[in-house]
Design a protein around this nucleic acid. Structure first.
Lengths: 211, 211
DNA sequence: GCGTGTACTTAACAGCGTTAAGTTAGCCGG
DNA sequence: CCGGCTAACTTAACGCTGTTAAGTACACGC
């Protein structure tokens, strides 16, 4: 049962189970280089020099492939958050989370679009939800909860989910708008990172408890 | 040159130039009822009892059809903003704009997705940009500019585009996240309209000039 | 040596947006 | 009255997509 088999045929040199990784790598490159709509099963197959059908031996369908592609990056985001987790002050940490998130979005628009701007038919529990080390949202939520229980926020703000969503929204709003209306003359675009950070700052001013 | 022609064949009863409107109506219904991906040229054609090719006589391509479909609603949004334009206080007006926008998004998720969450290759100047009566963003921008010149905002906030984007972001963030993660158990969803409004309130608290 | 299972291929299906070419019907100038 | 013109429409097809059924080749365990 242990896949020590290697049916690589006269194709020879290629490691068999490695094919899976090969497909993922090829897909990832096309994904980031030319956007999600450039990634077709046939194009991936061509790049790794297999037939399109071969891919279905390693992934249930296209969506599963893309999801696996993005889960790594999703985890990477959560771990980037983790790094800012060392900041003591939860408010300052929140700010830092925002910055990390904006940069992730602007640097990986394809992943961002797939992860946060695409309606998926069903829920895919790929990363472990509720675990702050893998799930970026639950890390944000925990930070907010910390700020609440430390009495740093306005007293009427008691629901950590709601406040977390408010914070996420400012940032996600800027990032997704700048992705959608990139090089559009509709909006006179200020620097997205700067605008996002200042938006976060404004929101923070609006939720902290005045003293 | 005036299209008084009527080449409706033995199909008879059908008004010729009206066909265009017929197609739009059919597409609109499928659009709001089953979402954008259910709208295929073939399906529309079947519904209006023409061949798919016939549609291309009235619209350059699918995107043009969808755009025309949404432009009406875009204008409707701008006019809904217009109605809140009567509020004297620019800050209060801003709040009201937010509420109107949230409702529009939550009530018309398909239109919303197409208008604000879809990357379009080129800019389509359908609604007249810069004209607050047609262009919802420029209405928002004007309100912000008014607040700035009335000295209502913090002194470091001088760019109306940037502040308008910050405000838009909170709202768009909530709306788009609630569309994408609708019935997803990842997030414990508070009421989106309430969360959006409170987010807007928090942001407003964070940008107004303290006195 | 023989089955078994894994990795792959060939061929095809159904659907998509779109286009080239042909048909039909009605108007308009001579 | 009639030939030409044009708008509105159809038939047939192209090239693309994701996906699947069926078949082949190889390496392994028994």
């Amino acid at each position: 049962m242990i896949p020590t088999t290697r049916g690589a045929k006269e194709r020879g040199a290629r490691e068999p189970q490695e094919t899976r990784g090969l497909i993922l790598d090829a897909a990832r490159e096309m994904f980031v280089r030319e956007g999600i709509e450039a990634v077709t099963m046939r194009a991936i197959a061509k790049k790794v020099e297999y037939t399109p059908t071969a891919i279905y031996h390693h992934f249930r369908d296209k969506h599963a492939l893309l999801r696996e592609l993005c889960e790594n990056d999703m985890r990477a985001l959560a771990q980037a958050f983790q790094r800012s987790g060392k900041i003591e002050d939860p408010i300052e940490r929140l700010r830092r989370i925002g910055q990390t998130y904006i940069r992730f979005g602007l640097e990986n628009p394809s992943h961002y679009r797939f992860l946060f701007m695409t309606v998926t038919p069903e829920v895919d529990p790929g990363v472990e939800k509720g675990n702050p080390e893998e799930d970026a949202y639950s890390f944000l939520r925990r930070t907010v909860a910390e700020a609440i229980s430390a009495g740093r926020l306005r007293l009427e703000l008691t629901d950590p989910d709601q406040v977390a969503l408010m914070a996420w929204s400012v940032i996600h709003g800027i990032v997704s708008l700048s992705i959608v209306f990139d090089n559009d003359d509709w909006i006179a675009w200020p620097d997205p990172e700067k605008t996002g950070l200042e938006g976060m700052d404004a929101l923070i001013r609006g939720i902290v408890r005045e003293r």
